[in-house]
Design a protein around this nucleic acid. Structure first.
Lengths: 229, 229
DNA sequence: TCATTGCTGATTGTCGACAATCGGCTAGAG
DNA sequence: CTCTAGCCGATTGTCGACAATCAGCAATGA
C-alpha cells in the first residue's frame, strides 16, 4: 500500500490556475465594487447580473456568497443583495482586526530563513514601487496584499492567515478610499512598507510589531489601548 | 422623503427565525461531523446527500460552501468534498487563533454595564452546569459558545467577533474530542468558566486576559510566546 | 513487459424553469 | 379621510436535467 491516501491534486503549486465561473464573476464584481463602479447601497439583482455576464443565476448566487463572506455585500434573505457601505467606525474596526491578526503571527519570531523572507519582501516592495510610479492603483493594492501576506505567512499559522485574508478585500477598499480622499501620493505607500522591511531585515521583532501597529492604527483615536507590543 | 433608506427588516432581533433549506442541511451535516457520525476523510457526494435529505443538489452545494468556510470539510474543485481531519497541530492552531481574537476584544475594557454582562454570563454558566449534570454534550458545547460569545460581544468589534465565530464549529469539535479522549468530567468545563466569570465580576481585566490565555492555551507547548497580556 | 492512448462510470459544474415570498399598490369598508 | 385586506410585479429560493471533467481501466503498440 503505497499511495491510497486521498492525495490532493493540483492545490497549491498550481501550474495552471483554473478559475471557475463563480470565481471569475466574483472577481469582476469585486473589482467593480472596489473601484466604486458599484457604489455602496447599489442593489445587485441576480437576474440582471446573470444576463450581463451570460451565466446562470446559480453561478451569480455562488459568487455573491463569496462577496458576502468578504464583507463587500450584504445579502438579506428573500429580499435583496446590496453593496456594503463602510463607515469610519467600520474602517477602524477592519484595521484593528487586521492588526490583531497580523501581529499575532509574529509570536514565534520570523521563521528560520529570514534572508529568504527579506528577499521576497524586497521584491514585492520593488513591484509596489513600480506600480506607484505607473500610478497603477490596482497593482499597488495587489502588491500591498502580497507584502503583508509574506509577513503573515512565515508564522505557519494557517487559521490566522485564512482569517486575515478574509479581510483582504475590505482592506483594499479602505486603502483606495484613503489614498483618494487624502489625495496621497502612491509613493507614500511604498515608504510606509519600507520601514517594515527594514525592521525585518534587522531582525528586530519588537520594532516590527510596533511598526505594524503604527501601520494599521495610526489615524484612529486610540482610546486607552493597552494590547501587547 | 422620510424613509427611503433600505432598512433591513428582521435581522437580529428575529422573533421568528426562518432557517433556509441550505442552512438546515448545513446544521444537520455539521451535527453529524461533530458527533463523528461522519468521520474524517468521509467523502460527501452531493447526489447522495440530496437524495437523503430530499432536496436538490444546489441546496446541498450551498450548505457545503458554508461547512467549507467553517473548516469542517474541504472541497476539491471538480473532484470531491471530504470531511477534514484535524491534527494536533491544527488543534493548537485553532486554539491560538481563537485566543488571539478573544483576547483582542478586551482592549477597550468590559464595556459600561458590567453588571448586565455578569448576569448574562452567570445565566449561561448555570445552563452549562445543567447540561453537565444531564451529561448533554451538545447543550454543553452550545453553552460554551454562548458564554464566550458574550465576552467577545462586549467589545463591539464586529469583524473580530465575526472572525471569531468562524472558528465556532472547529472549536466545538476540539472540545468534544478533548472531553472524549481524556475522559474528562463535563463539570470540569463549568469550573473552567467559573474563573473567567469571577475575573469579570471583579472587573480585573488583566486577570481575565491571563485566564483566557490559560483557558485556550494550556496543554500546548509554549515555545517562546511573548504576546501581550 | 511497459508505456501510451482512448474509453467509461462516477461526480461535479452549469443551466433554465418553476415555486415561494416580499413590498407596494389599490380598492373597499368604516 | 383613514385604515385594512387582498392583488400584483419583482425578486429570490429551489429544483431536475444536461454538460464537462476526472480517475481508473482496457486496449494497443513497441
Amino acid at each position: 500500500m503505497t499511495g491510497d491516501r486521498p492525495r490532493t491534486p493540483r492545490e497549491d503549486g498550481a501550474i495552471l490556475e483554473h478559475v471557475s465561473l463563480p470565481e471569475a464573476v466574483g472577481r469582476a464584481l469585486r473589482h467593480r465594487i472596489l473601484n466604486n463602479e458599484l457604489p455602496a447601497e447599489t442593489r445587485l439583482v441576480e437576474a440582471n447580473l446573470a444576463a450581463e455576464f451570460g451565466v446562470s443565476r446559480g453561478t451569480i448566487r455562488d459568487a455573491m456568497r463569496g462577496l458576502q463572506a468578504e464583507g463587500l455585500i450584504a445579502i438579506v434573505p428573500r429580499r435583496y443583495s446590496v453593496v456594503t457601505r463602510m463607515s469610519p467606525a467600520d474602517a477602524e474596526d477592519v484595521c484593528y482586526a487586521r492588526f490583531v491578526l497580523e501581529d499575532a503571527c509574529f509570536d514565534r519570531g520570523l521563521g528560520e530563513d529570514r534572508g529568504e523572507l527579506v528577499q521576497a519582501l524586497q521584491a514585492a516592495l520593488e513591484q509596489m514601487s513600480a506600480a506607484a510610479r505607473a500610478d497603477d492603483m490596482d497593482a499597488l493594492v495587489e502588491c500591498d496584499t502580497r507584502f503583508h501576506e509574506l509577513l503573515v505567512g512565515v508564522s505557519g499559522r494557517r487559521r490566522l492567515k485564512d482569517l486575515w485574508s478574509v479581510l483582504n478585500s475590505q482592506m483594499g477598499a479602505l486603502m483606495r478610499a484613503e489614498i483618494d480622499r487624502q489625495d496621497l501620493q502612491l509613493s507614500d505607500a511604498v515608504q510606509r512598507h519600507q520601514v517594515l522591511l527594514d525592521a525585518v531585515r534587522d531582525g528586530d521583532l519588537a520594532r516590527l510589531r510596533a511598526e505594524v501597529r503604527r501601520h494599521y492604527l495610526v489615524g484612529f483615536p486610540e482610546r486607552g489601548q493597552q494590547a501587547g507590543g
